[in-house]
């Protein structure tokens, strides 16, 4: 039997397989060079970059919880100029599609970063991070507000023809409404989901474990909730979905595909075992062969609810 087809498309972005690495868990690609050949991945998504340098939150920034971890990094990055000068040249040789995660506080800031990056052909697509829980946009996360989400997406859409993926926060009462706002704003895809807000307390000192007090929960603990959101959004909008949240192995990834994701991203699992994304690629291929699928696209949204 011939090998199953793993190719998928997100807007105009063509991926050799549906497996990416999630923003913030893989640096700018080269940190994992000893363990993972990025050329075998569908795409890499960079750590979020912002127009200006951001120092990030005070430590401690991470903490382990049962079945997961909390993080409050605070979008530490050296800013756009440094990214272009120092990080981008190395990304050129990665041999896979490069998706740059872009953060900002206003639509103008997102727009400025994207306009600057439009000049670099090695950037294949953008993922708008409008859902980081660890920084303050005056008083809210953009993707917690339908109107604000719509405005930011619409404004940024004017700045680029490249594939525009918008990453959403799960910390909302109805994620389908936000996803709808993203679709109406003209984006090409949604990434579901960013981390769930949480916290941990040191009972000896009665102090928060994280320097930022609260942080974002990721890892296997959030997978059922992330999966539910992918399924809900899949049923409400027509944009392709990049599914993520606690994917630790190929079976988890296949669950997301069946629930409606066109592609998946491996995040926290990179910390547990850097080889995970490659194992997920291979595992999806074996799953398809074993179940006699010729194409991964047959799996997408194939959840049988009859």
């Amino acid at each position: 039997m011939s090998k199953p087809n793993l190719k998928v498309a997100i807007g105009s972005l063509k991926l050799q397989n549906p497996v990416m690495v999630a923003s913030g868990t893989f640096g700018y690609g080269r940190e994992y060079a000893d363990y993972v050949d990025p050329a075998r991945l569908g795409a890499i998504v960079t750590k979020t970059i912002t127009k200006n340098r951001r120092e990030g939150n005070r430590p401690p920034r991470i903490c382990e919880t049962t079945g997961g971890m909390l993080n409050a990094i605070g979008l530490q990055n050296e800013g756009l100029e440094d990214f272009i000068q120092e990080k981008l040249p190395a990304c050129r040789d990665a041999g896979t599609k490069l998706i740059v995660s872009v953060g900002g506080e206003t639509s103008n800031e997102y727009g400025e970063v994207i306009e600057a990056l439009n000049a670099y052909p090695e950037v294949a697509a953008y993922e708008l991070n409008i859902s980081c829980p660890n920084i303050e946009y005056k008083d809210k996360i953009i993707s917690q507000d339908e109107e604000l989400t719509h405005k930011v997406v619409r404004d940024v859409r004017q700045k680029t023809d490249r594939t525009l993926i918008v990453k959403l926060s799960p910390n909302v009462s109805d994620i389908t409404r936000i996803a709808r706002a993203v679709q109406d704003g003209g984006a090409d895809a949604v990434s579901l989901v960013n981390t769930f807000l949480g916290m941990a307390v040191d009972v000896e000192t009665r102090r928060p474990v994280l320097g930022n007090i609260t942080g974002g929960l990721s890892g296997p603990a959030i997978k059922p909730m992330a999966l539910r959101m992918v399924w809900q959004v899949y049923n409400k909008i027509s944009l392709p979905i990049v599914g993520m949240g606690g994917i630790m192995n190929a079976r988890d990834a296949v669950e997301f595909l069946i629930a409606g994701a066109t592609a998946v991203a491996v995040g926290t699992a990179n910390f547990v075992d850097p080889r995970t994304p490659l194992e997920v690629v291979e595992g999806i291929a074996s799953y398809l062969s074993q179940h006699h699928y010729k194409d991964v696209k047959e799996l997408i949204g194939s959840l049988n609810v009859s």
């Binding site: 913030g24 363990y35 990030g56 920034r61 991470i62 903490c63 993080n71 990179n270 850097p274």
Partner: peptide
């Protein structure tokens, strides 16, 4: 320090220095 990736990617274990975290 408690660490995430251990490889310099996640920025989870940082210390404030004269040149930033």
């Amino acid at each position: 320090e408690f660490m995430g990736c251990g490889l310099g990617a996640c920025l989870g274990c940082v210390i404030r220095t004269v040149s930033g975290y």
